[in-house]
Design a protein around this nucleic acid. Structure first.
Lengths: 338, 338
DNA sequence: TTGTACGCGTTATCAA
DNA sequence: TTGATAACGCGTACAA
């Protein structure tokens, strides 16, 4: 790797001049020199040393993307195409803005903070933080942060979040089920916090509006730990049979449940109707194709990255909380029972 | 972020001493000093500045993972769970060895090389290189490289590859189809190079062994560009009807094809049998569940990373070419016609 | 218009 | 046992 110093020596100019040409500060350099230097730079295929540059500028041009996952779910997080779409959107936007993305997958906040400091990361996108995670990071890390899909506790007041119409989406999904004549509707998720909590609220609202009683028996919790999931699915499929429809908090869960049901000989949607949330490949590839709530994960990733990059340039976002639109996509897993 | 210099000042010792304590070079430091420094380090939660360290050591502790993709396929590469599993395996191994993974997704070799030089990446894992890609990178980049799923041209002699029993896997898949009584067997992939070429060879060998004629009509090529894929699938499903079985080069393709066929009213496996390759979630979630060739993508990723890290420590791998084992997994998409 | 000199945080060499 | 000091490559204020 050739350095600026070496180039300067070979061309018999100063390093300043070379550096100026590289950065287009050509007001103060004679045209011939510019020519000469530029030509040489191309010839030797000069590439700056990022470490030196970062050290000098005290910035890293790195944006960290933190996916906090409970240890056991590790695989599933990456296997859900929704997450992949989001990552794609983020990565693309970051790259096009001249930044670089670093991906942190960890369940250890302290480890994440340490990593982020070491690399002197310029900004952070935090995905799916629960409880006091966000709080803990903001205490230690004092550069721009954009949250995604995070509903932090009351302690964190001033934060930016790019989220979704979770409550509204769930409400519309369940209202559609009710419109189709369903009244015994279960709710399936793998936890009761954050995003799923909001979706649960929407589910409850739709029920209430239709005057449908809710009981705790309606809440099906999937255990997603490796080694646990199959048993859990079988059990849930069993329980599901006493409902006429199940609203699932993700397409992946919806498809898993449908398989479990079908394997027990239950016909979908004839015997049970299924509603998903996300609208990704799993649901689209399944037959019957999944009726679900659509979100544009890639665009949402892009938006989060754009906001963060704006922040890095000192631009305050227009609104600190974004709830991106969702809409119902009707396919073949919900039966009209009236 | 506190620096060594600052620590040294506050404790009234030299930076050298602090650095020595940090690196456990305690032979030359008095016990009290060690105590004092270590305690202080913990108190202030010292984190080294990677840029400075890298600059001083001329290394980066970064391993680059390069996924070369044709521009149009961008989405699919990340959407294939097989790729995700592999990435997980690589990332985990790299992290545990104290390194860091940088992910490059690009179709522009020059851009990749430039990036890799800038960041002074210590080693490279190259996935799915075609033609002279590998050649071009090895010419410019002179640190350890491990290839994955690469069958480079004749020009590249000395390289390390962690691959798969592609030929054998395809051979066994097709032989199984033949054993089940199929004789009109199509081959589906999206290109004719690298891995798919090897699988095609295996397919041909199985046909030949059974004395089955091959014609170019057997070779179905899926156009995977965005906007093209649906039309291509419909056309291929149409063609597929004149065969009794289709061997697909990936589970994803297999599921896409099955959907296209089912949407045209074709029953699987009653009217057409389908065989996949990879064994990932898409195939497992589909009903009927996909009969396919299993590979352990995560373990393969791990292995590649391990070999590379060994290389960085000067350890030559036992064998430069690894072909990991595959095996047939019989599920429900292949019908016995005898 | 061009060049000198210093700082960024760390490590390594060598002298005290 | 400890401490100055140079070096890594780059950017920049300031001097020439």
């Amino acid at each position: 790797m050739i350095t600026i110093k070496e180039i300067a020596k070979q061309l018999d100019v100063s390093t300043t001049t070379v550096s100026n040409v590289i950065h287009g500060k050509t007001k103060e350099v004679s045209p011939e020199t510019i020519q000469k230097v530029q030509k040489f730079l191309e010839e030797v295929e000069y590439v700056p040393n990022i470490n030196a540059r970062n050290l000098a500028q005290n910035e890293s041009k790195i944006i960290g993307l933190v996916l906090k996952s409970r240890q056991e779910r590790y695989m599933e997080l990456l296997q859900d195409p929704f997450v992949n779409e989001m990552i794609s959107g983020i990565e693309k936007t970051i790259r096009q803005a001249g930044y670089f993305m670093m991906l942190y997958m960890s369940d250890d906040i302290a480890e994440i903070i340490s990593h982020v400091s070491t690399w002197n990361v310029d900004g952070l996108i935090l995905f799916c933080m629960l409880n006091d995670d966000g709080q803990r990071i903001t205490e230690k890390y004092h550069k721009p942060i954009v949250f995604m899909d995070t509903y932090p506790g009351d302690t964190l007041k001033d934060y930016i979040n790019v989220g979704l119409e979770d409550e509204k989406g769930a409400y519309e999904a369940v209202r559609y089920l009710i419109e189709c004549g369903h009244r015994k509707i279960a709710f399936l998720s793998d936890n009761v916090e954050g995003v799923d909590k909001a979706r649960f609220t929407g589910y409850r609202r739709a029920l209430k509006e239709a005057g449908i009683e809710y009981s705790d028996r309606n809440f099906l919790i999937l255990r997603t730990e490796v080694g646990e999931i199959d048993r859990s699915l079988t059990r849930i499929a069993e329980k599901a049979k006493s409902f006429s429809a199940v609203f699932c908090c993700s397409d992946l869960f919806a498809v898993l449940l449908m398989d479990a049901l079908e394997d027990q000989g239950v016909k979908i949607p004839d015997e049970i109707s299924i509603m998903g949330f996300d609208d990704n490949l799993y649901g689209r590839l399944h037959r019957p194709a999944l009726t679900t709530i659509h979100q544009d994960a890639m665009q949402r990733g892009s938006l989060a990255a754009e906001i963060l990059i704006g922040l890095l340039k000192g631009k305050k976002p227009e609104q600190p909380r974004v709830s991106m639109k969702v809409h119902l996509v009707v396919r073949d897993t919900v039966k009209k029972v009236i």
